[in-house]
């Protein structure tokens, strides 16, 4: 009996580890930016070319940075939720229009609704790289001091909004 105990134990341990592995999402890469200052940027606004917005301008408030593009399919999925959130006026949402054509981006917002206080144009994706963007859409929660507190990879789901983003925003707004 005793001689089967060890292999059995090893098997159970392995099964537990592999089981945990199955529940993880390998597409979700933890961001090293969490609890670090949001990377600086100064970019032109989509609807007001010539007017620029920088990360520094947004200090002093809790805000969301939503990375989006008109070519991005999953953005359509999350967009109604963002429009609703924008209407509720809980937290200002700023859009980072990632590697997009301004005309297409503005047409897309016209069609889908515009929840953003402002969208800034990241045509060559440099700011996207600074924010570690690898799959659009992505959403960052940034606090008053300009520290990144949370990153949602992929579309914002009602569940993520209700359970993570909104409670965090409320806590940060204090």
């Amino acid at each position: 009996m005793n001689r089967f105990l060890l292999p059995l134990g090893v098997f159970v341990l392995l099964a537990v580890f592999l089981g945990i592995g199955l529940t993880l999402n390998p597409r979700e890469v933890p961001s090293p930016l969490i609890d670090k200052p949001a990377p600086a940027f100064t970019l032109q606004e989509l609807h007001a070319p010539g007017k620029s917005l920088s990360a520094e301008d947004l200090k002093g408030q809790v805000w969301l940075l939503n990375v989006w593009a008109s070519w991005c399919v999953s953005c359509r999925e999350e967009h109604p939720l963002l429009v609703e959130l924008g209407r509720a006026n809980v937290v200002p949402i700023y859009g980072l229009n990632y590697k997009d054509k301004p005309d297409a981006a503005m047409a897309w917002l016209g069609e889908m609704g515009n929840p953003y206080k402002a969208s800034i144009v990241d045509g060559d994706g440099r700011v996207g790289i600074d924010y570690g963007v690898y799959g659009v859409p992505e959403t960052f929660v940034i606090d008053r001091d300009g520290i990144v507190r949370y990153k949602q990879i992929g579309p914002v789901t009602p569940q993520a909004l209700k359970e993570k983003i909104l409670p965090l925003v409320r806590k940060l707004q204090g």
């Binding site: 890469v29 933890p30 961001s31 090293p32 930016l33 790289i129 600074d130 924010y131 570690g132 690898y134």
Partner: peptide
């Protein structure tokens, strides 16, 4: 790169 994307 690791500052932006992690050790990944």
């Amino acid at each position: 790169l690791t500052d932006r994307y992690g050790d990944f």
